[in-house]
Amino acid sequence: MDKFTVLESVAAPLRIINIDTDMIIPKQYLKTIKRTGLGTGLFSEMRYLDDGSPNPDFVLNQPAYKNAKILVAGDNFGCGSSREHAPWALLDFGIRCVISTSFADIFYNNCFKNGILPITVSPEDLEKLFDDADRGANATLTVNLEAQEIRGPDGGKIHFDLDPFRKHCLLNGLDDIGLTMQKAPSIDSFEKKLGERAWA
């Protein structure tokens, strides 16, 4: 998993509440268990017209936001089913940080397991970030995980809270497998002792 330290990017504004995981990645894309290739299906029902062409009105199709790595979204982001394909699709598109006033619990947990930083802010701070995001390519946000702050294009700062363990994992690029591998010497030692006991 890639480390998350400082992220500077244009932020795409998505002023929709209750964006569920089916809106993030519709069910027809769930046939794969690969984490790659899902970016094309991200928000597909809003991103593409009926004939399959890009919807010019959808934010991620607009030139200023095509390479956005930060998403500023409405309340209750990631609700609905527990599909892990949702963070996979965001990550495959290039989104590394989602900012909202609240997240569904399972989606929130899945983000950390996949190297995405979900940030919870107050409604007032979200409005400030929406204003910044609306400026498109003329404004970038900087997310500093170590300092736990979002810096706006005009120098304003918003502090965010985060569980220390989750922060440690993101800073060091540790998913569940990475965390387990840190214990490899202890696991090897245990297995060796177990094997010796079996032959005793």
Rank of each mutant, 00 (worst) to 15 (best):
N110Y: 10
G80W: 07
L90I: 04
I106R: 07
V72S: 10
F93R: 13
L38K: 13
F107T: 04
V72H: 07
A73C: 15
L42E: 00
T32R: 03
P63G: 02
N114H: 15
P54H: 05
H85Q: 14
E45C: 10
L117N: 07
C111E: 08
G41C: 05
P56E: 02
L91M: 13
P56V: 02
C111Y: 04
C97R: 02
K66F: 08
D105W: 08
N67H: 14
P87E: 07
N76L: 04
E124Y: 14
P118V: 00
R83Q: 09
V59A: 01
P87L: 11
G78T: 08
L71R: 03
S100W: 07
L42F: 08
A64V: 13
N55I: 04
C97W: 01
S102G: 10
Y108H: 14
N76G: 09
P54C: 05
N110P: 11
T101M: 02
T120E: 13
F93D: 02
T40N: 12
V59L: 05
I25A: 00
S81F: 14
I106Q: 04
R47C: 12
S53Q: 13
A64G: 09
C111R: 06
N61G: 10
T40E: 14
Y65P: 13
I119T: 12
N114R: 12
G41V: 05
V121L: 02
W88L: 12
A64L: 07
V72W: 09
G80V: 10
F58E: 00
L117I: 08
I99H: 08
S102V: 09
A104N: 12
A73S: 15
W88H: 12
L126C: 04
P56G: 01
A86D: 10
Y48W: 07
S102L: 09
I106M: 09
N61R: 10
G78C: 10
Y65H: 08
L71W: 08
A64W: 04
V72Y: 08
N114P: 14
L49R: 15
E124P: 05
I116D: 01
N76A: 08
C97K: 03
F58D: 03
C111V: 07
A89F: 15
L117G: 00
C97S: 14
L117H: 01
L90Q: 01
G37E: 05
K34M: 05
F77R: 01
L30Y: 11
Q28N: 12
T40G: 13
I33M: 13
F93H: 13
Y108F: 15
T36S: 13
N114W: 11
S44Y: 08
S44D: 11
W88E: 06
E84P: 13
P56W: 01
T40Y: 10
D57R: 12
L38C: 11
K31N: 07
E45Y: 12
Y65I: 09
S122W: 05
F58V: 09
I95V: 15
N110S: 11
A68Y: 02
V59T: 15
L42S: 03
P54M: 03
F112W: 03
I99S: 10
G37N: 09
A64K: 04
I25F: 05
W88T: 01
L38D: 06
T120C: 13
